[in-house]
Design a protein around this nucleic acid. Structure first.
Lengths: 253, 253
DNA sequence: TACAATTGTGTCCATAATACACTATGATTT
DNA sequence: AAATCATAGTGTATTATGGACACAATTGTA
């Protein structure tokens, strides 16, 4: 929670630089070796948590704002980002900023504004991220998807919608380019899918389907030095991968 | 184009009632007997056209605003509406309102605001609609999807995105409830799909797949009086239809 | 009564999805 | 050195699905 002095400064700055009534909230899914986490911030002087988010500069493209916010919270650039929904219930931010409502008259109080939030989800490898809190929080950390704390506002809904959208997206879009190392094995890629979907897949069928998409190149040299049979290494075929991102995988009708 | 007096009044009203920087644009697809049209408005004193749109009241839910806007333009209620994307290029509305920029100082001029627009698409049967122009237009009419005029702003992009989304949606969501009469024949329903996808489908395969979704009830009585073999009548099974809307059709992974 | 137009109902075939088994490799254990 | 274990690669039988296609049934019209 901000002090009155901080609040005044925060609001002055926000009113000067940001587009009013808009916020961006990012559901940042972090993956690594079969673990899936979500980046969350903990509210100052409260137990509750919220999604990384922020506001849009007056002349800033939305996508750029989302990237900037993510850069601030994770230090990462060029990450996979996907706009998925706008949440606009008129009451959605009311309860959240109750605490500030008596400190400043409503006309000057940024937080008493109605906010519509544009939801983005991002996919990153969490070992490369450097979680950094914002001024309203005491900490910024990766939380296990299966053990989420209570979330403020409508952030639980936003998170669930993001996850549903991501899982749906798996059916007709390639993913993984930003999540896998340059070269990876088929079992490693499978683990990513299993983690997102939260279920086991059949090794052999996964491989056949994945290869069928035509977005992988198999390297000549298998990985050496492991404790077991050397697996083949794959990398994404950029050309086909990008094409698949645009076109989607299956015809449907 | 508005006169100066009209503009002043328009801006005063807008500033008082609407949430600044937000607009809603609706891609209204109208269907009837194998024809697919889009509802467009023609700018006053100009040849160009734009999508039906509007603004959000300060305390209005987004969805409600979209419904209100559609009710104003078509007279229709309870239509299928789907939010699909936010368009937020900072320059997107600049050129459009050039004409008003000298009439009022920017601080009072609603139209010199930056607007982000929330895209909705709607599906209606156009014979039930009553197209009604707004104050910025000279006419509001159904235009053939295959013979579209030049569109202002980024409305061509919005329209294309809506169409792409709709076609994708056909793969995992039922549609037609608001577009078909209460009872309809399989060929009639097929025509709707063919119209949306702009391609021919095989009668027999369509029927099999459609029935496989389990969202149709077949009536005992076939339709009488036609010039040919009496077709069976179907209606949507509300329970299954609603469930399919939520759950989606196929498993994928 | 033949015909045209339309609808209903298969059937065959290729492809894709699923379940499942065997072989291969490299390190570790005995 | 042989046995073992964990992991990886590949194949095959079975089932489900999707696409192409043919024929029978019904109804009004020529």
């Amino acid at each position: 929670m901000l002090t009155k002095k901080e609040l005044i400064e925060y609001c002055r700055n926000a009113r000067e630089n940001y587009l009013p009534h808009f916020s961006i909230d990012c559901v940042v899914f972090g993956f690594h070796e079969g673990i899936m986490k979500v980046l969350l911030l903990q509210v100052k002087n409260e137990g509750e948590w919220y999604l990384p988010g922020g506001f849009m500069l007056k002349k800033e493209p939305i996508e750029k704002a989302a990237n900037r916010i993510l850069k601030e919270r994770t230090g990462l650039d060029k990450i996979f980002l996907q706009q998925f929904h706008v949440f606009g219930d008129p009451e959605r931010s009311k309860a959240h900023f109750e605490m500030y409502k008596d400190m400043l008259p409503a006309s000057q109080n940024w937080f008493t504004n109605r906010f519509l939030t544009i939801g983005y989800y991002a996919l990153v490898d969490f070992i490369y991220a450097n979680p950094t809190r914002d001024v309203l929080s005491v900490s910024c950390t990766w939380r296990d998807l299966h053990d989420l704390p209570e979330l403020k506002l409508d952030h639980a809904l936003i998170l669930k919608t993001a996850l549903d959208t991501l899982r749906l997206q798996l059916n007709y879009q390639p993913i993984g380019y930003n999540l896998m190392p340059k070269e990876f094995t088929m079992p490693e890629l499978q683990k990513l899918y299993e983690t997102i979907l939260d279920k086991k897949l059949d090794r052999r069928n996964f491989q056949r389907r994945m290869l069928g998409f035509g977005i992988l190149n198999r390297s000549e040299q298998p990985r050496k030095g492991g404790a077991h049979k050397a697996p083949y290494l794959y990398s994404f075929n950029q050309e086909n991968y990008q094409a698949a991102l645009k076109e989607g995988f299956k015809g449907g009708w």
